[in-house]
C-alpha cells in the first residue's frame, strides 16, 4: 500500500494546470457504465436472495437435497460454513451464520434485506431485462461509433505475448501509463472490459435463460451446451463470482490510479492526463 501511495503522490506531483484535460469517455459509454453498475449490483444482491432459497450447487441435469453439492453455504450449530467439495471453510459472521441471520448470504448483501424469494425474483428478472437491453444497445453503439475497434480492440502490437507480459509486470508494480499513453485503455484493461462485455454478460444471461423451464421447451439445445439445468445454475453462480472479482479489481484500479480523476472521467468524460513518473523523467 505504501508503494502505491508513493506512486500516486509522484503522479500528482506536477502542477495540475500543466497537464492536459482530455475528453476521454463519450456520453453513451458513461450512461451504459452507470446503468450497468446499478444493474449488476441489483442482480448480484437479488441473486443472493434467490441463492439463499437453496444454497447448494450441483453439476448435471438434476440436483436436490439428496444429491451431493459441489458447493454449499450453510450452518452447523453455531458455525457458518462454506463447503467446496471436501474442503470446509469456517465463515461464521460472514456466510451461513451471522449476528442477524442464519441464511447463506446475510441481509446486508441481499435485495430485499430480509428473506423473500418472491421479491428477490421480482428484482432479479426486472434487472435481467435492463441488463440484456442495455448490453445489446451498448454493443450496437460500440460497433457503429467505433468505440469497439478504436478503444477496446487490442492492436496487433498489444496482442503479442511479450507485450502483455510487460503490461502484467507494470500492473504488478502498480506503474500505470502516463501522459499520451493514458488517453487509451491499456491491454489488460481492454481484456477485462472485453471479457465482461463478450464473455461474462452473455454467459450469465444464457445460463440464466437455461434455468427457465419454458425456454427449455423453446431452446432445448441450451441445456446440452451447459450440461443440464443444475450445471447451468452452477455456471450462473460462477459468473456472479466473476462479476464480483471484476468489481473488486476495477474499484482497486480506480483507487490506485487516482479516484477523483477517474470518477470525473466516468461522470463528465474529462480526464486529466497523469504526469510522467519522476523515475522516468
Amino acid at each position: 500500500m505504501e508503494a502505491a501511495s508513493a506512486i500516486i503522490t509522484s503522479q500528482v506531483d506536477a502542477p495540475a494546470q500543466d497537464r492536459a484535460l482530455v475528453y476521454r469517455t463519450r456520453l453513451p459509454v458513461r450512461i451504459w457504465h452507470w446503468v450497468n453498475a446499478i444493474t449488476i449490483f441489483a442482480m448480484l444482491m437479488s441473486g443472493a436472495t434467490i441463492f439463499n432459497a437453496h444454497p447448494r450447487l450441483y453439476w448435471g441435469k438434476y440436483g436436490a437435497t439428496f444429491e451431493t453439492p459441489w458447493l454449499e453455504i450453510g450452518r452447523q450449530g453455531q458455525q457458518g460454513f462454506l463447503r467446496l467439495g471436501s474442503l470446509q471453510i469456517d465463515t461464521t459472521g460472514f456466510l451461513g451464520l451471522t449476528e442477524h441471520s442464519t441464511r447463506a448470504f446475510p441481509p446486508l448483501v441481499t435485495i430485499p434485506n430480509y428473506y423473500s424469494l418472491a421479491e428477490g425474483r421480482q428484482w432479479h428478472f426486472f434487472f435481467a431485462w435492463v441488463l440484456v437491453l442495455s448490453i445489446v444497445v451498448f454493443v450496437i453503439y460500440a460497433i457503429f461509433s467505433r468505440h469497439l475497434s478504436h478503444d477496446l480492440s487490442l492492436s496487433r502490437e498489444e496482442r503479442k505475448l511479450s507485450h502483455l507480459w510487460h503490461d502484467i509486470k507494470e500492473h504488478a508494480r502498480l506503474r500505470f501509463p502516463t501522459g499520451e499513453a493514458a488517453k487509451a485503455y491499456n491491454p489488460l484493461q481492454k481484456i477485462a472490459y472485453l471479457g465482461v462485455i463478450f464473455v461474462l454478460i452473455p454467459l450469465v444471461v444464457l445460463t440464466g435463460m437455461t434455468m427457465s423451464p419454458m425456454l427449455n421447451a423453446a431452446f432445448p439445445w441450451m441445456l446440452d451446451i451447459f450440461g443440464g439445468r443444475q450445471s447451468a445454475r452452477s455456471i450462473h453462480f460462477l459468473c456472479a463470482t466473476g462479476f464480483l472479482a471484476f468489481i473488486f479489481i476495477h474499484l482497486l484500479m480506480v483507487l490506485l490510479a487516482g479516484p477523483i480523476n477517474e470518477l470525473r472521467s466516468i461522470i463528465t468524460g474529462w480526464y486529466r492526463l497523469p504526469a510522467a513518473r519522476k523515475d522516468r523523467a
Binding site: I50, A53, K61, T65, R229
Partner: peptide, 12 residues
C-alpha cells in the same frame, strides 16, 4: 420430465 422448484433444485 424435470421438476424445477422455484428455490432452485431439480428432480427428474
Amino acid at each position: 420430465t424435470r421438476h424445477d422448484c422455484v428455490e432452485g433444485w431439480s428432480a427428474i
